[in-house]
Amino acid sequence: MTIDWANLGFDYIKTPFRYLSIWKDGQWDQGKLTEDNTLHINEGSAALHYGQQCFEGLKAYRCKDGSINLFRVDQNAKRMNRSAKQLLMPEVPEEKFIQAVEEVVRANSEFVPPYGSGATLYIRPLLIGIGEGIGVQPAPEYLFTVFCMPVGAYFKGGLTPTNFVVSEYDRAAPQGTGAIKVGGNYAASLYPGKLAKERHFSDCIYLDPATHTKIEEVGSANFFGITKDNRFVTPLSPSILPSITKYSLLYLAEHHLGMEAVEEDVYLDSLDKFTEAGACGTAAVISPIGGIQVGDDFHVFYSETEVGPVTQKLYDTLTKIQLGDIEAPAGWIRNIKN
């Protein structure tokens, strides 16, 4: 397969190998690599009817010396297990999760894009309830799989601010599944996301479901803002997915940029305190927010066309760590030699 690395999108591409493991009778099997990209499951599987499933997303990065970096993969393993626990699914042992990811990356190493291309290898671990069943109850068996594909740079031509609109819809219920990575949260966002795009916004801003006064998430990403007194702020709520990128930026803002970095309430009527704002997550790393439509009012942060200086520094620092260009904090990087 010939790949035009410079023109990759964020689309499914079949790579040669994926990992597959089955939980049955109280234990996981050894797991194996397979070339079959079709899952064969019972029609009564709980994942299909009752949404008993969770997933993760992470990336592998080609370094200048040709080796491959995995970024904070242990945190993805921990987050998947938090999701599994709440959905009454068996946890995937952390060492099994990491081994599966590494096996898939090694087996598909020719699909890890070249250093400097702006592209990466996107990795999708998935855990689903399978087996014969039809009642509302945990599945009798579970399937854990990891597959991957090369994806292009999220930003074509560099970081570009985009605009968002506050949604009247809720992403997740109070005390619900907002803090775990389950497909139902994303299914619920499709319709309000469509409405936002029809109005020529990038996506929705979701508010806290209890009071609709505080920002929680930006589409499928986490919100952050830079205040006038140079603080890095992200929303605090039990309904927000704990983004690994967000917690990495909190650390870098404090330890690399010397800022105060906090999680706290971000009230919709207090946007004036922010000089910059953005969304962060695995796919985009950082997406600068130009402005937010709040009812009839449109609030602009740093600029609708230019990236703020703090946002740029955070993006540069994080991506250089991921690519191995600067030293990472202890435990953040697992390097795979070809």
Rank of each mutant, 00 (worst) to 15 (best):
A139K: 05
Q52S: 10
P329K: 10
Y50V: 11
E102M: 15
Q52I: 13
E91H: 10
Y267S: 12
G281E: 06
Y251A: 12
Y206C: 05
W5G: 03
L257A: 10
A139L: 08
L127W: 11
G116H: 09
R199T: 04
R106P: 05
T145E: 05
A279L: 03
A253W: 06
K14T: 13
G135K: 14
G135M: 14
F223A: 02
D296N: 14
V182H: 06
S237E: 01
G176R: 03
A179F: 13
T245F: 10
F155W: 15
T211A: 13
T145D: 02
E132S: 14
T34A: 00
S303G: 06
H256Q: 14
Q53A: 14
G44W: 08
H40G: 00
A172N: 13
F97V: 07
H200F: 11
Y19S: 03
L126W: 13
L250T: 13
H49Q: 12
S248C: 08
V101T: 09
P235Q: 08
L241S: 02
C280A: 08
E141A: 08
S202P: 04
L87W: 05
D203K: 00
S109A: 14
Q312F: 04
I326H: 07
Y12W: 13
A261E: 11
A179Q: 13
P90D: 14
W23Y: 15
D297W: 04
R334K: 15
E260F: 02
E260C: 07
G31Y: 06
E198C: 02
V101N: 05
A139Y: 09
L236C: 07
N81T: 08
Q30L: 11
T177E: 03
Q322W: 05
G176I: 08
D316S: 05
G291P: 00
A153C: 12
F147T: 00
G295D: 00
G116A: 03
A100E: 06
P329Q: 09
H299I: 10
V218C: 04
Q137D: 13
G66C: 06
A277G: 02
V218L: 01
V233Y: 10
I3S: 03
G258K: 11
A261H: 11
A179C: 12
P125Y: 12
E94Y: 05
T305Q: 13
S239N: 15
V300D: 00
D65A: 11
T311K: 11
Y247V: 09
G281Q: 06
N338T: 10
G281A: 14
L159R: 04
L121Y: 04
M1A: 12
I333K: 07
